[in-house]
Simulated assay, not measured.
Amino acid sequence: MRGVPVPLRLCAALVFVGSCGWGGPDDGDSGRLPAAPLGVTAAAGSATSVHVMWNAVPSASIDCYEVYRGTTKVREVPGSQHMVDVTRLKPGTPYVFTVRARDMEGRLGPPGREVRATTPVAVAADHEAPTRPGTLEGRAVGSRAVQLSWSASKDDRDVVSYDIHQGGTKIHSVGGDQTAAVVTGLRAGTRYTFTVQARDAADNVSPASGTVRITTPGSDDGGDTAPTDFRATARHADDGAYYLDLSWVPPHTDGVVTEYQVRLDGAAATSLVFGGEPPRGRATYSFYLGREAGVDHRVRIRARLPDGTWGGLSVERKVTTGAPARP
């Protein structure tokens, strides 16, 4: 989606939102400790907070992640979450963080690599958020773009940016001196819901503007947005468990696709989120199915598009644990 940044920087590999890991079988499922989280990063968010992110361990059995400041556990988040703000820190202070995964059976894996961040020196306090942006208006500009405009927010210092959200996803941002934006890379015949929030230099965020709903003209059955050449195979691993190996070609969009949803037997099984450089060619992913042979499964996959909507579903594949792979 041209001009629309990917709303999440997530993993350097693949995230399991149910997972941010990417690739093979999970050690936790085979009786061993969960692996150490990869791709851990830390960045100061303010004079008293640091934002910590990591790639999820590739497993359906991760219960939570423990975040440590030095040797002290400071946060614990669900296995579906792969970022956290560590708050109540001291200004102008260096910190060291690590992250560990814990599985459903309570087994705690080793820490990922240590990451360091230094909070900036405190400046004159600014706790006042900008005012709510004024009346938000919008119109479709063809079948793949909308034009939005709003009245400026006020702040005791300066508004530095406006964040544009589609539904619950931040899809664009413009400078604080702008009160209009064109959002591109949308889908024809799709209903969108937009809001705008103002942000100041101290990262104070205004209340959301009113909502504007816009339906782009034309029609889109989702077929052009579905992953293609989707393949699924049930694999019997050396540990005696069965794993589902998936591969697909990402859909062609105006932006980078970073998130997918896997649907198993008609229900959402997990979401996968890429960060760094998501694959442009064939992507692969594996996850644990169980230990019982002769179990039938149906699986499909779909992508969350850069406009914040879900694309079309891939073709459905059927697999049976313990059965020969279908050609």
Rank of each mutant, 00 (worst) to 15 (best):
L14I: 09
V17W: 11
G28F: 03
P34D: 04
L38C: 03
T41W: 13
V50M: 02
P58A: 15
I62F: 07
T71M: 08
T71S: 15
K73E: 15
R75C: 12
E76F: 07
P91S: 10
V99Y: 06
G106L: 09
P111K: 11
E114K: 15
E114D: 14
T119I: 12
P120N: 01
P130V: 09
G134V: 05
G138K: 06
R139A: 12
S143R: 04
S149V: 00
W150I: 02
S151V: 10
S151M: 09
I164L: 15
T169G: 00
S173R: 15
D177P: 02
R187H: 04
A188T: 00
D200V: 01
A202R: 06
T211S: 11
I214V: 08
S219I: 05
A234V: 03
R235H: 11
A237T: 05
L244S: 02
L246F: 03
V249M: 14
P251Y: 03
P251T: 06
H252L: 11
H252T: 14
V257C: 13
L264G: 04
A269R: 15
E277P: 00
T284P: 00
R291P: 00
H297W: 04
D307I: 05
D307V: 04
K318L: 06
T321N: 05
P324L: 05
P324N: 06
